[in-house]
Amino acid sequence: MSTIPFIEARFFDPKEDRIELETRFMRHLRKLRCRRIPPDLPAPPDEIDAPGEIPDTDLMGIIRFSDDDEARIKRRVNRIIERRKAASGLEHLKRDDRERLEVLKDGARLVQISSEHRADEIAAGLHGDMSWMAPATEVVWRAMRRSVREGWPGLRVPPLLLDGPPGIGKSHWARRLGQLLSTTTSVIEATGENASFGIVGSQRGWGGSHPGRLIETILQSRIANPVMVVDEVEKAGRATSTNGHAFGLAEALLPLLEPLTARRWSCPYYQVKFDMSWVIWVLTSNDYRLLPEPLLSRCPPIRLRHLTLAELQAFVRREGAKRNLSETSIEAICEILSHPSLRQHRPSLRVAARMLQRAADLEQGPTLH
């Protein structure tokens, strides 16, 4: 993995506090005064041999600081500290928040694709697991190859809007993508979040203000291109402040989906700029027509179809083998899914996943006597 600058802030060595700076200025002034000592007087010891110790000549009264010297040193140290605070860009934060952001002082890592051959392998694995998601897999495949071909420091994928009927595994495909890329994946249910606050966070001054899932994910993993999944984005609500100002999810996502603005995205909670241009966004919807046009212009919808019964049964057999389920359990699930009573319903990956989990719980549970 390569590392890129991620936060627009400066972090200074915590060891260089006020006492350390004052001591450094005193040593420097002492060296300057020592040059004026008459040659017949004893010279101060080498500070390399006795670091941090006051020279004997100082104790003997040959070199002594006046009150004016100490005042000048303190004034200079105060100016340095004030300028450091202004240059850090973090002075408005509490100490706990500053310490939290310090993990990004050396930058954030980027997940890379080592070669075009590796990109082909990842795309083939994704397509083999969920062939009905081929239109989305193709977009990612081309992005992976382009990242390698153009020599980018990490993988960059354009924002994806997966639009299709419910139960076809759109969010499951996004999770699988994160696994194959070996990057962090975070799934946000748009229907369960308080508008945009769950993703980007809320501004200080709002009741219960907090950082969003986006910056929290990166702080925990220190990876600048995680997979961020927003499920059922068209069903997100809108938050309204006490003064009547409404703020929706689509408006919050717009600057993050545009590379130029995402490169210097300002976090509402920390009020610090971060480089979010590498984040891999996967939005899912059941009806893209409910989304605003500015969002659709940044994320052209990728239309997806229903999966067939044969594709669903093949998925059950692959997933069942990965979970070490018995052949009997796997075939029983396939038989249930093909029962005539279910023919009036479309095959659902969500139902099949619940059956697989139930079968795994039964097979791995304790024996009842």
Results as ranks from 00 to 15, higher is better:
residue 4 I to S: 01
residue 6 F to G: 06
residue 12 F to P: 00
residue 14 P to H: 10
residue 15 K to D: 08
residue 19 I to W: 11
residue 21 L to P: 04
residue 28 H to S: 04
residue 48 I to D: 09
residue 51 P to V: 12
residue 63 I to T: 13
residue 65 F to Q: 11
residue 67 D to S: 15
residue 76 R to F: 15
residue 78 N to F: 11
residue 87 A to L: 14
residue 88 S to G: 06
residue 107 G to K: 03
residue 108 A to S: 05
residue 111 V to K: 01
residue 112 Q to C: 02
residue 118 R to G: 01
residue 119 A to C: 09
residue 122 I to C: 12
residue 126 L to I: 00
residue 126 L to P: 00
residue 128 G to N: 15
residue 134 A to V: 10
residue 134 A to Q: 12
residue 135 P to S: 13
residue 145 R to M: 11
residue 150 E to M: 07
residue 150 E to I: 07
residue 153 P to M: 01
residue 153 P to F: 01
residue 160 L to M: 15
residue 161 L to A: 12
residue 188 I to L: 13
residue 189 E to Q: 10
residue 195 A to T: 03
residue 195 A to R: 03
residue 203 Q to V: 01
residue 204 R to K: 07
residue 205 G to I: 01
residue 237 G to K: 03
residue 248 G to Q: 03
residue 253 L to G: 02
residue 258 E to M: 10
residue 262 A to F: 12
residue 262 A to K: 13
residue 274 F to W: 02
residue 281 W to Q: 09
residue 286 N to S: 13
residue 286 N to Y: 01
residue 294 P to F: 03
residue 296 L to K: 09
residue 301 P to M: 10
residue 306 H to Q: 13
residue 317 R to M: 10
residue 319 E to Y: 01
residue 327 E to T: 08
residue 327 E to A: 10
residue 327 E to H: 10
residue 328 T to R: 05
residue 329 S to F: 05
residue 335 E to V: 01
residue 335 E to L: 04
residue 336 I to A: 11
residue 338 S to M: 05
residue 341 S to L: 12
residue 341 S to P: 04
residue 343 R to N: 09
residue 344 Q to K: 12
residue 345 H to L: 11
residue 355 M to H: 14
residue 363 E to K: 08
residue 368 L to W: 15
residue 369 H to A: 14
